[in-house]
């Protein structure tokens, strides 16, 4: 089953009397196990597409389906439940809860899903160790580097085994070496655990290492295919 499907999706924003189209007639399928980079100039619609795919916003036209579930008919509460159970998020600014430790941040989604404390602690601890944060479980975000914080954010996103992880420029706020490490981590999780990733990026190296590149321009898909077959305009 496809992890994410967008069918003829459009999104318009209204600013006063002006209607600003952010996405226009986008069709996109992300199969389960995909490792897809999304790129394009600023204002091309990358964040809007991620917001729609993540049930954070609703399209003006078209349908968004996560694992076959149409998001358009969901109530706010059902949207929240879907995000909790089937979608993982990684944000550019890490967005960890500052008063929770790395372990507590990682296990947070499992806690929302009602997983018992013992089990979720074990799973979170094991995953943190797997991604190179063993021994740092009890550190608060302020005690971690940017790269380490983003690793915790990735752990939080994948620990509940979502259908898809949506990552909004996950390497934008770290240096190139840390960005490369983070990408390697995502590749490993994709390869070992079959995690489906859809991430936006401006980083050429990140684009090249993706299995598939979706290039957006003016709210439309300009290119969708192998990264090496695309000449960045």
């Amino acid at each position: 089953m496809d992890a994410l499907v967008l069918e003829n999706v459009s999104k318009n924003y209204v600013a006063g009397d002006v209607v600003v189209p952010a996405l226009s007639g986008v069709d996109l399928i992300i199969p389960a196990g995909g490792f897809v980079a999304m790129a394009g100039p600023s204002g091309s619609g990358k964040s809007t597409l991620l917001n729609l795919a993540g049930a954070l916003d609703v399209p003006t036209e078209g349908r968004v389906l996560v694992e076959g579930h149409d998001l358009s008919g969901l109530t706010t509460s059902e949207q929240a439940a879907l995000r909790r159970d089937r979608i993982g998020f990684v944000f550019q600014n890490y967005n960890l809860v500052p008063v929770l430790t790395a372990l507590e941040n990682a296990e947070y989604v499992l806690m929302l899903r009602g997983v018992g404390q013992k089990e979720r602690r074990e799973r979170a601890r094991a995953l943190l160790a797997e991604i190179g944060l063993g021994g740092m479980e009890n550190r608060f975000p302020r005690q971690l580097s940017g790269g380490q914080q983003q690793r915790v954010a990735i752990a939080r996103a994948i620990l509940a085994e979502p259908a898809i992880v949506l990552a909004d420029e996950p390497t934008a706020n770290v240096d190139s070496r840390t960005a490369s490490d983070l990408l390697a981590l995502m590749e490993k999780l994709h390869a070992d655990r079959g995690v489906t990733f859809l991430f936006s990026t401006h980083d050429l190296d990140v684009m090249r290492r993706a299995g598939r590149l979706v290039w957006l321009r003016d709210g439309r898909i300009f290119y969708d295919g192998k990264p090496d077959g695309f000449e960045i305009p």
Binding site: G54, L56, A80, A81, F89, N95, V109
Partner: peptide, 8 residues
């Protein structure tokens, strides 16, 4: 963020 990851 917490609502985005499913917190009511």
């Amino acid at each position: 963020l917490l609502m985005a990851i499913g917190t009511r």
